[in-house]
Each structure stands twice: as structure tokens, then as C-alpha cells.
Design a protein around this nucleic acid. Structure first.
Lengths: 156, 156
DNA sequence: CAATAATAGTTCATATCCGAATTAATTAGC
DNA sequence: GCTAATTAATTCGGATATGAACTATTATTG
């Protein structure tokens, strides 16, 4: 059966899309692509703790510290102390961030539409299902297959 | 018509897969996921200039400088001066790199198989076509749609 | 209720990644 | 042939991303 190098293809596709979008967002909106991702999460629902944002984006929480620091400096978002839990923050989007997200969203919608333009509704469903499958199962698949395949380390 | 947030889905899928793979590769083979990608390109054909590797991976050449530096230090690859062009190098894979790539390839093949396991041959073809479409057209689509959507910058 | 475990975030060292500017070498144009 | 444009790679400054270790706080539990 035909076996495309899916990992490689995903890496290339992501790289091309992420790079172009990051460039355009920086130039036109003053956002990075990663900051856009955070804003979109917050536009859906505000006031979430950092761990939840990290989860939503499949990222480690330590990755978000600096990202949110810079977004806070830029006046896009705001950390507020959680009233009941002194360890935790809630992250809120500010007007400046809402405006940036609105602008970015317009472009991203068009880009999404173009990326899917050559595909039928049925095909789109397959694509979506696949991407969700990878999102949800990559960690367990990689762990399981690594156990089987990488029995020995490469000698130093 | 149903319009999934494709950009977001690609970002999440890539993030999940890349993170898990990077962790497994570091632990078992002593490679990063990015180094694996370079090795796979070199396993297909050796002795390529750095720009060609960058092209192959949809990356800027400046990103490869440090990557190849570290791989060279680790004894995986080797830069050799191009005999006819003094500006250029050819990058060759060394035994140590070949061994690492072989090990990594075994795991990656299994992972690719698992990622595609729930999909029929027809569906796989759609998935592959989509990922290649994104790879090849992301830059021009993003540029074109940015022109249209981001007419005004967000005020500072 | 005090000792312990668990949890939320940050800090740290390291590795990517980028675009713009730079350097060195080759090629084009005249 | 020689100057100008081009090209290959590196350097630089900045942003992202990770896991491990750490801090502070909350929850558990004996």
C-alpha cells in the first residue's frame, strides 16, 4: 500500500504556512504567528489560566511564559491574579489584542478558504479528521512505536 | 459549506507530532527532530549544498548554519569545500549520522504507518495531496490574501 | 493541624528558527 | 579585463520552544 512520509509532509506544510503567515502578520498587524494562536484561543474564551492555553495549543506551559510576557508588554493581553488560587493567573485579552485578533482573523479566514479551495466537502472532512487524529494521538503513537523500534541507543 | 480552521489544525497537529518525536529521538537516538529531517534529506542524496537542504525542508538557509554546526560537532555530518565554487560547501553524512538515521527511520516508518492506519488508500491520497498543496502554495496564498485583507496596519 | 504531595507558573540552559545585514567568491555586462 | 550584480553561507538580534529544576501555594492525609 502507498505509504507517504507523513511526518515529513506535515513538517514541510507547517513550515511553509507558519513562515509565510508569521512574516505577513508581523508586517501588517504587529503579531507573530504564535501570538496570533494565543489570541485566537482567548477570543473564543477569555480569562483562562496559562496551563489551559498551553493545553489548547499542544504546548508546554514554560513556552507560554515568555510569549505572554511579550504580549503583555505589547498591551495585547493582561495577567490577573486568580482570586481563589494564589498560584494561578487568568489571562484576559485587551482592546489592543482584540483589534489585532480581528484583523488577523480576517486574513486567516481567507487563507483557510484558499488552502481548502481545491478540495470537495468530503475531502475536507477527511483532511480535518486526519489533522485531529494526529493532534490527539501523536503522543501515544510516538511513545508506543518508540518503545518497539528504539530498543538500543546508538553507541556514542 | 463547512470551513474548518485549517491553519490552527495544522499548527496543533504539527506541534503534537513534532514535540513527541523530538522527545523520543533525543532520548533514544541522540537526535533532535530537526536534525533527523536534515539526515533524511542527506540519506536520499549526499553531498548537497546547504541552500539545497534548506529548500528541501522549506527553511531559510540561516537556520541551517547552527543546525549543521551542531551535527558536525556531534560527528553526524561533514562540510567539505566545493571544489569548483569557493563560496559553497557540500554536506556529507558520516557513519555516525548514517547509523542514527537508520535507527530514526525505523521508528518514523512505524509512526507514519500508525498515523495513517485509520485511513483508506483513497483518503491517504487526499491527505497527501492536501499537505503538498499547503507546502507548495502557502507562501503565495498568504501573500495574496494578506494584500487583500490587511489593508491598514493596527495603530500603535 | 502539621507533614507531605500535588499543582501553577517561572527560571534556566539549550536548540530552533527567522530576516536583515555582512562577507567572500563567482558571474555578467560592457 | 574589470566593475557591478549575484550568489552561498555566516553572523546578528530577536522570538519561539522544550524539559528540568525551582518557588509559591493549595490540597491531602494521617
Amino acid at each position: 500500500m502507498h505509504q507517504p512520509r507523513i511526518f515529513h509532509l506535515i513538517q514541510r506544510a507547517h513550515s511553509a504556512l507558519f513562515r509565510a503567515s508569521d512574516r505577513a502578520l508581523r508586517a501588517h498587524i504587529g503579531l507573530t504567528a504564535s501570538q496570533q494562536a494565543v489570541l485566537f484561543v482567548l477570543m473564543i474564551r477569555d480569562g483562562r489560566p496559562i496551563s489551559e492555553i498551553a493545553n489548547e495549543l499542544n504546548m508546554g506551559k514554560s513556552s507560554l511564559t515568555g510569549l505572554i510576557d511579550r504580549m503583555e508588554t505589547a498591551g495585547m493581553v493582561e495577567r490577573r491574579h486568580h482570586q481563589e488560587d494564589g498560584r494561578s493567573f487568568k489571562v484576559f485579552i485587551k482592546d489592543r489584542g482584540r483589534a489585532a485578533a480581528d484583523g488577523a482573523m480576517r486574513g486567516t479566514k481567507r487563507i483557510n478558504a484558499e488552502l481548502l479551495a481545491p478540495f470537495t466537502a468530503t475531502e475536507r472532512a477527511v483532511i480535518e479528521k486526519f489533522l485531529r487524529h494526529v493532534s490527539d494521538n501523536a503522543a501515544s503513537i510516538v511513545d508506543a512505536q518508540s518503545q518497539v523500534s528504539f530498543k538500543e541507543k546508538v553507541s556514542p
